[in-house]
Design a protein around this nucleic acid. Structure first.
Ligand code: FES
Ligand code: FES
Lengths: 152, 152
DNA sequence: GTAAAAAAGGACACAAATATCCTTTTTTAA
DNA sequence: TTAAAAAAGGATATTTGTGTCCTTTTTTAC
């Protein structure tokens, strides 16, 4: 469904929103550990998220790190996908035709368009902060560590 | 969503089911042109479909080619995905956690599981022949050729 | 103003997906 | 029984995705 890049982007952003703030910025080391992802690769992805679309904010130097502004927390999850150029999941033809349209539909279009609509809604209507709230209800996870983990 | 391999596998199988039969087998040349895909790569994919799961039947030599048996036409679309080892779209966690489960859900699980269920149903409950029937209703497409095309 | 901390950036390494080409085997038709 | 047709198979090339490492820049604390 999504590339590793997009998956790490989503997990990292949620993690930062969850555990960080403007006066408690998180380092790449902690983030990568927290979401169980390769450190340097994740760093590259965070660059995309700070540059392209300003989903994540960052500060260099001692006490620097990553955090999300209140504005960013209100952004839809789709903004994360946009930053890593993977919005196309919600527009593509399931059979890989160049265009997905009503005027030139593939044989699966009628069935698939309904699913795609829901995917689109999920990514567009869900704010990043909503995922944080969901997590904070308890018993949600964002890493692959075994055993039960205390919710934050 | 799906890899090129899976997309070509789906389109090719539908095309063969649509235009071929046991006494009108289709050559790789025609198939690749018919679905607008790279010839040799498509040939490799058809090998997977003939071997792994017997979705497609083939015969070598003059008047040889590819076709679908009546039995194969009744197989679910998922059988095509299985042949190219891409069934995991309907089981994976949207955030890329190693397991998607109720006992260890990610923050998007609650929303995504419903979508995944529908995806699963689409691939499992739809028979290959149904897609052919859908196509034959007219004004459906399986290639990228411009302009209006006469439905078969 | 110097040293340390941290992200940013660049270069490279490795792996997987995509794609092409050529040879071999099977089959049919003449 | 030979030639041609067609898929099967093998080797390799190309591109993209994933991942690492090292240097540079920015910032803070002392
Ligand atoms: S045209 Fe294929 S999904 Fe819309
Ligand atoms: S755990 Fe992430 S989708 Fe189910």
């Amino acid at each position: 469904m999504l590339s590793k890049t997009a998956e790490y982007a989503l997990r990292a952003t949620i993690y930062i929103a969850l555990k960080g703030s403007e006066d408690n910025k998180l380092g790449i080391e902690e983030i990568a550990k927290g979401i169980d992802s390769p450190r340097s690769f994740t760093a590259k992805i965070l660059q995309l998220l700070t540059q392209n679309n300003r989903v994540i904010s960052s500060v260099r130097g001692p006490n620097g790190g990553f955090y999300l502004t209140d504005r960013a927390r209100k952004l839809p999850v789709k903004a994360i996908l946009a930053a890593v150029e993977e919005e196309n999941v919600i527009t593509k033809c399931v059979l890989g035709l160049k265009e997905c349209s009503e005027t030139r539909p593939c044989p699966m279009h009628t069935q698939y368009k309904n699913i795609k609509k829901q995917l689109k809604q999920m990514f567009e209507k869900t704010a990043i902060q909503q995922l944080v709230d969901e997590f904070n209800k308890g018993n949600y996870f964002i890493d692959n560590l075994k055993g039960v983990r205390k919710p934050c």
